[in-house]
């Protein structure tokens, strides 16, 4: 079995990048030995260099702050959708507990962690609210959910102050371990 020029040409990048299987690489090399045209083109391609492109330095402190904030805001509206669909079709089992006291904790997470944290709080409160709807009082539950959304928004708005904290560690120590 041999490779023809077209087959070799379509494998030149893979040959240079060492992405050919050993069998194909062998066939490729055999073709180059008997075909000067393909050998020359392979050498010209090999001579190509792709120097790194200079992009603004993402390691600058605070570089991602604006994105964290943007994600926090988007997260709260995405969550409203989640809550609405949860209300339409309540999941059996649901969430273990609401923990209103946690809302008063002094959170100092970077933005993303903060919004995810806040999102989880709202989800917990919201799903608990769904369960109370099933139990008895629909209006009170809806009110509770709206209030928790407001609290969550305030939380997101103020929680991205201290970026020096490692967010994952904080989440790991947080009170919501395994609660969902």
């Amino acid at each position: 079995m041999q490779l023809d020029c077209d087959e070799v040409e379509s494998r030149m990048a893979a040959w240079i990048d060492a992405e050919l299987s050993p069998g194909e690489a062998e066939l490729f090399a055999q073709h180059l030995e008997r075909c000067p045209d393909c050998a020359l083109m392979t050498r010209r391609m090999e001579a190509q260099v792709f120097p790194p492109i200079a992009v603004v330095d993402t390691a600058v402190p605070g570089f991602w702050d604006a994105m964290d904030e943007g994600l926090a805001m988007a997260g709260s509206s995405a969550l409203r959708g989640t809550l609405r669909s949860a209300q339409d079709s309540p999941q059996p089992g649901g969430v273990a507990a609401t923990a209103p006291g946690l809302l008063r904790r002094n959170l100092r997470l970077p933005g993303v962690a903060a919004f995810l944290y806040a999102a989880l709080l709202v989800l917990a409160v919201g799903l608990a609210a769904v369960q109370s709807v099933r139990a008895a009082n629909a209006d009170a539950a809806r009110l509770a959910m709206e209030q928790s959304l407001e609290r969550q928004q305030r939380l997101s708005a103020t929680a991205s102050l201290d970026v020096s904290v490692e967010p994952v560690g904080l989440v790991a120590q947080g009170p919501f371990r395994g609660s969902l």
């Binding site: 492109i53 992009v55 993402t58 991602w64 994105m67 994600l71 993303v112 962690a113 995810l116 944290y117 999102a119 989880l120 967010p167 994952v168 989440v171 790991a172 919501f176 371990r177 395994g178 969902l180």
Partner: peptide, 19 residues
């Protein structure tokens, strides 16, 4: 920990995706 997972995704990929 769903919240930590999303945060991990953001931290893992944002630099490469920005590039």
């Amino acid at each position: 920990q769903p919240q930590a997972a999303m945060e991990m995704v953001v931290r893992k990929f944002r630099g490469r995706l920005f590039y």
